[in-house]
Amino acid sequence: MTPLTPADYDAIRLSLQVSIAATLLSLPFGFAVAYLITFVQFRGKVLLEVLINLPLTMPPVVVGYFLLLLLGRHGWLGSLLDEVGIRLIFTLKAAVIASAVVGFPLLVRSVRIGMEGIDPQLINASRTLGARWPDTLMTVILPLSIPGLVAGSSLMFARSLGEFGATIIVAGNIPGVTQTIPLAIYEYAASPTGESMALSLCLVSVAISVIVLFLHETMAKKAARSD
């Protein structure tokens, strides 16, 4: 095993940055979507569920390609952003977006399972005790969804750490800018002399994943005990 180079440390830092940013950015949206699916009756609910879960079943490269079409300079959203001077493609922001899109279904799924476990009578109790719906949302649904949010966040974080296919399409593989751990490993693996370097980063990746999953299990057990 070879000691890590400054570029490897950059990759680790970028991976953590991307994963943390993608998870934090997705949390409010994940909560909102899970809430919609769990508590609100509306037309097109099944379609929304399909769209949310689509990145789970599609190859990440396909997701990345669609994002490229959407966010590229000639894309529908990319051209609008380009007019106001915002460029996303081949930046760290694109890596965050790619990770967020790919990990989002895992987050929603966990939060939704948590919300579905909330006794509807608790919500009724809150309403009959004088709480308006937003009040009930903040004082009953949100606190009781915390185990789901924690579980979903850790899963999404872990998924973001490993994100490769979509990221390489929309963010490229620029060392120190968009190169995350999986992309660095890919580069080392493609090089005839990079085997031990790849192994070092693989071990780092495994260590981070173990820590995240360990925290996930600990928090899940804690949440189960407090029920």
């Binding site: 009724n124 009959t128 308006r132």
Partner: peptide, 10 residues
């Protein structure tokens, strides 16, 4: 429900 001032014991 919150406007009715009818509380419940479940």
């Amino acid at each position: 429900p919150e406007q009715r001032r009818i509380a419940m014991v479940f």
